[in-house]
Design a protein around this nucleic acid. Structure first.
Lengths: 251, 251
DNA sequence: CGGTTGCTTGAATATATTCAAAGTTAGTGG
DNA sequence: CCACTAACTTTGAATATATTCAAGCAACCG
């Protein structure tokens, strides 16, 4: 299922022409950093929707940056219940945890076709020794992920099902918007209600009823794979506080 | 409420005699690192139980390492509901997130008297530039926190209340044990049921019933502030998988 | 003591799950 | 083009899980 890039995107994008560089709000590399990152990068990976990119408990020699497409991180209990931990969008780093520790603590699955940049774990130490700016970025990315997880924990633990759903939708929307994958009120979204349920820790049936309630009240409109939102209403329901970030780095 | 150290621990512990260094499983510094950390450290802080050490939304010029005592990180919704995100024990880093980003995304409160090492945020960049090993450690610590949060998310989202409680108790126990603050089956624990409830995202009443059920079945015994556990039974209920860590760093 | 904090219990209610079944949609192959 | 399948969504009904409200109890502290 895992295949090398062959068609729509050239086999090897030079980092100088990284498509992520054009996204507003993403940090720019210095010349030396760019040169290093180019050598750190050993290839590209293309996976189809539904593919498992990394498995919990495995040990990977690579880490990745999402170039395009959607994915998610998750963990599964022995009884089969699945918790979606976070969603992955372009610019997100994949597998850092597994690179620092023995094994991956979670699995990663593609929600749409994804293109990923492949980096060599073995050269991570070079990065730390010679590129403190990039090292700082890695910590920054880990700290931001921590912040997102904090917020999700707050959502699942303390918000009502409806508030949590509203929050999650706004979260996905704002992340997509920043990457130019959504406009003010509508976006293409490759999730099913099952994913929402597993991210919120709710049953599929209950999630369906909550989403329908929001639809009937014209807060959202989710059809085919496009989601339209009434931003103002959602913000009110979710108690959303926008997060003003620094220029965000990627590698 | 925040006071400088004055009595039981001397005003300034030299890093060479850091009490954390004696804890088994904690990483040792090289000579140069030690020298830097000593200069990075600008003081110590002692706080009483109940003190808020850092507040969500604030901007702190310091970061901290817990030298002794218990604390917790949390976030609060406008309606007053509180989610405990994680607990803090000796060796844990406090406020890294706030040092990398504009503001703290969560608050930190002491559960017992705590002693903390105080570091200067402004010198963080020196650390990255000159001590790649320490920089790596910071990323490692952030990645480990991420892993813990992943697990908590799994717990709250997918485990039953009883499984979640069992998991949380084992989690606290294993962390305390590694620091020599617990023996095989019993420990001093400064939490109330309110803290357990807020960490699990359950109401106080329900948490009480769940804990009593575990008590009646002789799985746990929690009286005064000491907790005794039947390790084997808890592991079975929680579906606990021990995490074999590297030597863990601290700063 | 009196006041506060934390634990416990019952009863009523609300929220969410499970089970079961049917409706919808998109894709596949004859 | 239709029949068929698979994946996803929707609904109802029964049940389980968890919350809220209210009250009482115990321990501790000044």
């Amino acid at each position: 299922m895992v295949t090398l890039v062959h068609n729509s995107i050239p086999r090897r994008i030079p980092c100088a022409k990284c498509p992520l560089a054009n996204i507003q709000g993403f940090r720019k590399f210095t010349g030396e950093e760019l040169e290093f990152v180019q050598s750190f990068k050993t290839g590209e990976l293309s996976v189809e929707a539904g593919t498992t990119v990394l498995s919990e408990g495995s040990h990977s020699d690579h880490l990745y940056t999402v170039l395009s497409g959607w994915g998610f991180r998750h963990k599964i209990l022995e009884n089969g219940r699945r918790q979606i931990l976070n969603f992955l969008l372009p610019g997100d780093l994949v597998g850092l945890q597994g690179s620092l520790q023995h094994e991956m603590g979670h699995s990663v699955e593609a929600l749409s076709q994804m293109f990923l940049c492949v980096f060599e774990r073995s050269r991570l130490w070079d990065l730390y020794r010679n590129f403190p700016g990039l090292a700082y970025d890695l910590t920054w990315l880990a700290a931001r992920e921590e912040r997102i997880l904090d917020e999700h924990l707050l959502s699942i633990g303390q918000r009502t099902a409806e508030e949590g759903a509203a929050y999650l939708i706004l979260f996905l929307f704002s992340r997509a918007e920043r990457r130019g994958m959504a406009n003010k009120s509508s976006m293409e979204i490759p999730l099913t209600q099952r994913h929402i349920a597993d991210a919120l820790g709710l049953s599929l049936v209950h999630t369906n009823r909550i989403l329908n309630r929001l639809s009937r009240r014209k807060v959202i409109n989710w059809q085919n794979h496009t989601l339209r939102i009434e931003h103002k209403k959602l913000v009110e329901i979710a108690g959303w506080v926008p997060d003003l970030d620094d220029d965000r780095p990627y590698i």
